[in-house]
Amino acid sequence: MTTLTKVLLRASNKYTELGYNRHMPKSYVERVTQAVPRRVYDNRFGAPAITRWRLHPDDVEHGEFRPWEQKAVNNTLTKVRDYHKHKLMQKYHQRGLPQQRIPDELWTMLKGDLVQVMIGKDKGKKGKIAYIVKERNWVFVEGLHMKRTISDDLERMKKMGVQQFPSLREQPLDVAKGEVMLVDPKDEQPCEAEWVLNEDQSDYIRVSKESGVEIPIPSIAFQTYEYNDPKTYREVELKDTSVELTLERTYKPSLSTFEEDISKEQGIDERRTLKPTYWY
């Protein structure tokens, strides 16, 4: 993992990428949530291709778990099996609703932010964000808006003979409905925030719409699956390339193709040319 230099970060909206799954390849998350095509039937003489999904992206269930965790995977695999069975038996399958998620450019809640709960028993209380589920516009605040619930893996506990005790668990708060709002650092009142360019025009900062004061980004917001703080990341010896080597520029533009460059380097001297052919 490399820390990007200032040159690469200039005036680009990198704040949209902030999140725990930031460095997880999108294809991996799709594969794990099974939101990938099982087969694409193409070559239909111009008619649009038919996609047969493993699990349609609208049917994917997002919740208080990372997509690659075992709990999520088990849930989706049963859905995938049912969907395939329904299709083979030509039965009707009701699709889920598309996700009405807030676009990344307008998302202002980050992990570790001070927010105020606007509904329920803890209305008016302030707390820090512990967990975010962007796909459902959910935010879990530490220690607030809790409910007495029994843990999810009931069957496993029963098998092991462990008695079920209800515990307090945080419930999700919807940002789109205004159930939770950021706290303005000036007057400590709930406010809405937006991303604007700073004075140098070099980076984006969060600014409260009411007072215009900057809301600083907490350091834990940069936490990902790989590291808690990008500065503390240690490169893996035989797998990662160091920052210096990665950003070292060795490219010299020249009037030769990639293949010609490599042939020259390897000492392949090919004088023969392709004979003319017809394309139809």
Partner: peptide, 10 residues
């Protein structure tokens, strides 16, 4: 075709 350069995969 005969006389073409060797097919190379880089």
């Amino acid at each position: 075709q005969p006389g073409n350069p060797q097919n190379r995969v880089f």
